[in-house]
Simulated assay, not measured.
Amino acid sequence: MPEATPQDTRLVSIGVPVFNEATYLAMTLDCLLAQDYPNLEIVICDNASTDATPGICARAADRDPRIRVLHAQENLGATANFQRCIDEASGDFFMWAGGHDLWSSNYVSQCVAALDAHPAAVIAVPESNWIDENGQVYGSRASVLDTRDMAPLARLLTLLWANMHPIYGLIRVDRLRACGPLPNYPGADLVLLARLILEGDFVPAPLALWSRRQARAQENFHDRQRRYASSKVKIHGGPFPLLNLVYRLWHAAWSSSLPLSDKLAFTLAFPGALPARYLIARRRVI
């Protein structure tokens, strides 16, 4: 375990929501434990896994006291399991970690440094790339969302065309909890990011790298919606998920502290942006 210095004594909570992640979980936990920022707690929320995941979690917790494992007696659904990670976090900063992903050893320290350098920021966003089941990089690196010097309305409009990778960045716990419980519908990660981006900046941590593993079979838009609605994921969007998402984003803007003129400007600019994003997503297979 790396030795702490006066600059890294604040606790960073890493929530690891897992369900049947036995294939890569040991590698993932080794990667998190190798972070050069020593003051970590790793909260694994096991969503009633039926494979070897519980045993992998138990062995990891036995060898490192920074790991705490919580087992659900039955599958709670993905959103509730992600929320449980937040509820159990004790740190000043928080990040979710997928049970099949990898991170550079300086990931946490670089993100903490980025937030320290920008007190108005709510999330530090690393560089990210995709890796396959063998850990090989493919495609191009994702662009990093940097909203410094932007007005709140500009930040919000920029988010509509950004990727969702910031949701796995390092977040100030108090700002995350101020957004309320995680909503449970398709696109809820975009709504959460909208709430956060209205609270403050997203800043880059360009020396940190998150490698996001494509761990499931390729799926199109309709396949993804069916997976969301399954008994293992339990994310239900109703008969009109896009309309629901439009309303939720509109409500996030209108319930914020934006001035009325900005709310009206968002209402005028918004209707064309989300349908265009939706059409792009329908063609995307990942």
Rank of each mutant, 00 (worst) to 15 (best):
1 M>Y: 04
3 E>M: 09
5 T>H: 10
8 D>E: 14
9 T>P: 00
12 V>D: 06
12 V>T: 09
17 P>W: 12
17 P>Q: 12
21 E>T: 11
22 A>E: 15
29 L>I: 15
30 D>L: 06
33 L>C: 08
40 L>G: 06
47 N>Y: 12
51 D>H: 12
56 I>A: 08
68 R>D: 01
74 E>K: 07
77 G>R: 06
82 F>Y: 10
83 Q>V: 00
86 I>F: 03
90 S>M: 01
91 G>S: 00
94 F>V: 04
95 M>G: 00
99 G>H: 02
107 Y>I: 01
109 S>M: 04
109 S>Y: 00
109 S>L: 03
111 C>A: 06
112 V>E: 05
114 A>Q: 07
116 D>L: 08
120 A>M: 13
124 A>W: 07
128 S>T: 11
131 I>C: 11
133 E>S: 13
142 A>P: 00
143 S>V: 09
145 L>Y: 07
145 L>W: 08
148 R>K: 12
149 D>Q: 15
152 P>K: 04
160 L>Q: 13
162 A>D: 11
163 N>C: 01
166 P>T: 02
166 P>I: 02
166 P>S: 01
167 I>D: 00
180 G>A: 04
181 P>W: 03
185 Y>L: 11
186 P>K: 05
186 P>D: 05
196 L>D: 05
198 L>M: 02
200 G>E: 08
207 L>F: 06
208 A>M: 09
212 R>I: 11
216 R>T: 14
216 R>C: 10
217 A>L: 15
217 A>E: 15
225 Q>D: 13
225 Q>P: 01
227 R>F: 13
230 S>Q: 11
233 V>A: 10
237 G>S: 13
241 P>I: 13
244 N>H: 15
245 L>M: 10
245 L>K: 11
248 R>Y: 07
255 S>V: 02
255 S>F: 05
258 L>H: 07
262 D>I: 04
263 K>F: 08
269 A>F: 11
274 L>Q: 06
274 L>M: 10
277 R>K: 15
280 I>Q: 15
281 A>P: 00
282 R>L: 10
